[in-house]
Computed example of a mutant assay.
Amino acid sequence: MSLIKQIEDAETKDQLEAIGKQSPLSVDVDKRKGVETIRAELMEMAEEAVASESGEKGGDENQGNPAQEGLSQNHGEGDDGTATGEPGAADDHSAPKPASKRQYSGRLLKNRKTGRLFPWTAQLAKKREMQEV
Protein backbone atom coordinates (compact mmCIF):
# COMPACT_ATOMS: atom_id res chain seq x y z
CA MET A 1 0.00 0.00 0.00
CA SER A 2 1.34 3.43 -0.89
CA LEU A 3 2.46 5.82 1.81
CA ILE A 4 -0.17 8.42 0.91
CA LYS A 5 -2.93 5.81 1.05
CA GLN A 6 -1.70 4.69 4.50
CA ILE A 7 -1.82 8.28 5.75
CA GLU A 8 -5.35 8.75 4.42
CA ASP A 9 -6.55 5.49 6.04
CA ALA A 10 -5.01 6.19 9.45
CA GLU A 11 -7.61 7.07 12.08
CA THR A 12 -5.57 7.79 15.22
CA LYS A 13 -2.53 9.81 16.17
CA ASP A 14 -0.72 6.58 17.08
CA GLN A 15 -1.25 5.19 13.59
CA LEU A 16 -0.06 8.44 12.04
CA GLU A 17 2.99 8.43 14.33
CA ALA A 18 3.87 4.89 13.21
CA ILE A 19 3.60 5.97 9.57
CA GLY A 20 5.74 9.05 10.24
CA LYS A 21 8.53 6.91 11.70
CA GLN A 22 8.73 4.73 8.56
CA SER A 23 11.82 5.03 6.40
CA PRO A 24 10.80 7.50 3.68
CA LEU A 25 9.62 10.15 6.18
CA SER A 26 11.48 9.37 9.43
CA VAL A 27 9.92 12.24 11.40
CA ASP A 28 8.66 12.58 14.95
CA VAL A 29 4.97 13.43 15.16
CA ASP A 30 3.81 16.06 17.65
CA LYS A 31 0.82 14.41 19.32
CA ARG A 32 -0.32 17.72 20.77
CA LYS A 33 -1.63 18.65 17.33
CA GLY A 34 -4.93 17.45 15.93
CA VAL A 35 -5.28 14.33 13.80
CA GLU A 36 -6.09 16.33 10.65
CA THR A 37 -3.14 18.66 11.20
CA ILE A 38 -0.76 15.74 11.62
CA ARG A 39 -2.27 14.06 8.56
CA ALA A 40 -1.82 17.21 6.46
CA GLU A 41 1.83 17.59 7.50
CA LEU A 42 2.58 13.93 6.79
CA MET A 43 0.81 14.14 3.41
CA GLU A 44 2.96 17.13 2.47
CA MET A 45 6.14 15.32 3.49
CA ALA A 46 5.05 12.15 1.70
CA GLU A 47 4.37 14.06 -1.52
CA GLU A 48 7.81 15.67 -1.31
CA ALA A 49 9.39 12.25 -0.70
CA VAL A 50 7.56 10.77 -3.69
CA ALA A 51 8.61 13.70 -5.87
CA SER A 52 12.24 13.40 -4.83
CA GLU A 53 12.22 9.64 -5.45
CA SER A 54 10.74 10.09 -8.92
CA GLY A 55 13.34 12.78 -9.65
CA GLU A 56 16.18 10.45 -8.66
CA LYS A 57 14.82 7.57 -10.73
CA GLY A 58 14.29 9.85 -13.75
CA GLY A 59 17.96 10.83 -13.74
CA ASP A 60 17.21 14.52 -13.13
CA GLU A 61 19.71 14.89 -10.33
CA ASN A 62 20.53 18.43 -11.45
CA GLN A 63 17.14 19.80 -10.39
CA GLY A 64 18.43 20.72 -6.93
CA ASN A 65 21.85 21.86 -8.15
CA PRO A 66 20.82 24.92 -10.23
CA ALA A 67 19.19 26.50 -7.20
CA GLN A 68 22.35 25.98 -5.18
CA GLU A 69 24.49 27.28 -8.04
CA GLY A 70 22.19 30.28 -8.42
CA LEU A 71 22.58 31.10 -4.76
CA SER A 72 26.33 30.90 -4.93
CA GLN A 73 26.39 32.92 -8.15
CA ASN A 74 24.18 35.64 -6.68
CA HIS A 75 26.40 35.79 -3.63
CA GLY A 76 29.47 35.97 -5.83
CA GLU A 77 28.00 38.71 -8.02
CA GLY A 78 27.12 40.79 -4.99
CA ASP A 79 30.67 40.46 -3.72
CA ASP A 80 32.15 41.36 -7.11
CA GLY A 81 30.00 44.49 -7.42
CA THR A 82 31.06 45.84 -4.05
CA ALA A 83 34.70 44.70 -4.33
CA THR A 84 35.28 46.30 -7.75
CA GLY A 85 33.45 49.45 -6.78
CA GLU A 86 31.17 49.38 -9.83
CA PRO A 87 28.12 51.42 -8.89
CA GLY A 88 25.89 49.66 -11.43
CA ALA A 89 26.54 46.22 -10.00
CA ALA A 90 25.97 47.37 -6.44
CA ASP A 91 22.70 49.09 -7.41
CA ASP A 92 21.36 45.92 -9.06
CA HIS A 93 21.64 43.97 -5.81
CA SER A 94 20.44 46.64 -3.39
CA ALA A 95 16.90 46.20 -2.10
CA PRO A 96 15.50 49.63 -1.19
CA LYS A 97 12.74 49.41 -3.82
CA PRO A 98 11.19 46.13 -2.56
CA ALA A 99 11.48 47.41 1.01
CA SER A 100 9.52 50.55 0.11
CA LYS A 101 6.77 48.42 -1.44
CA ARG A 102 6.42 46.47 1.80
CA GLN A 103 6.54 49.57 4.01
CA TYR A 104 3.48 50.14 6.22
CA SER A 105 1.44 53.06 4.92
CA GLY A 106 -1.21 53.40 7.64
CA ARG A 107 -1.25 55.32 10.91
CA LEU A 108 1.87 55.00 13.03
CA LEU A 109 2.65 55.41 16.71
CA LYS A 110 6.08 56.37 17.99
CA ASN A 111 7.39 55.39 21.41
CA ARG A 112 8.61 58.60 23.07
CA LYS A 113 11.31 56.80 25.07
CA THR A 114 12.81 54.53 22.44
CA GLY A 115 11.73 56.21 19.21
CA ARG A 116 10.52 52.91 17.80
CA LEU A 117 7.58 53.03 15.34
CA PHE A 118 4.55 50.75 15.60
CA PRO A 119 1.40 50.33 13.50
CA TRP A 120 -1.51 52.16 15.11
CA THR A 121 -3.79 50.09 17.34
CA ALA A 122 -6.33 51.35 19.84
CA GLN A 123 -4.59 49.50 22.65
CA LEU A 124 -1.19 51.04 21.90
CA ALA A 125 -2.70 54.50 21.36
CA LYS A 126 -3.99 54.46 24.96
CA LYS A 127 -0.47 54.19 26.35
CA ARG A 128 0.97 57.57 27.38
CA GLU A 129 4.47 56.86 26.07
CA MET A 130 3.06 56.40 22.56
CA GLN A 131 2.62 59.40 20.25
CA GLU A 132 0.90 59.38 16.87
CA VAL A 133 3.23 60.31 14.02
Rank of each mutant, 00 (worst) to 15 (best):
Q6P: 03
E8M: 01
E8N: 07
K13G: 01
Q15I: 06
E17W: 01
E17T: 01
A18W: 03
G20R: 03
K21P: 01
L25M: 04
S26I: 05
V27S: 00
V27F: 01
D28A: 01
V35T: 14
V35S: 04
E36T: 08
T37C: 02
T37Q: 08
I38N: 10
R39V: 02
R39G: 03
A40T: 10
E41H: 06
E41R: 11
M43P: 07
E44Y: 00
M45N: 03
E48W: 00
E48N: 05
S52I: 12
S52C: 10
G55L: 11
G55P: 01
G55W: 03
K57M: 10
G59C: 11
G59V: 06
Q63F: 00
G64S: 13
P66T: 14
P66A: 10
E69V: 12
E69C: 11
E69M: 15
N74W: 13
E77Q: 14
E77F: 13
G81A: 14
A83E: 15
E86D: 12
E86M: 12
P87E: 01
G88H: 10
A89P: 10
A90Y: 12
A90V: 14
H93N: 14
H93R: 13
P98R: 00
A99R: 10
S100C: 09
Q103A: 04
Q103M: 02
Y104M: 03
Y104F: 09
S105Q: 06
G106D: 06
G106T: 05
R107N: 14
R107W: 05
K110C: 00
R112V: 08
T114N: 07
F118A: 07
T121D: 02
T121I: 07
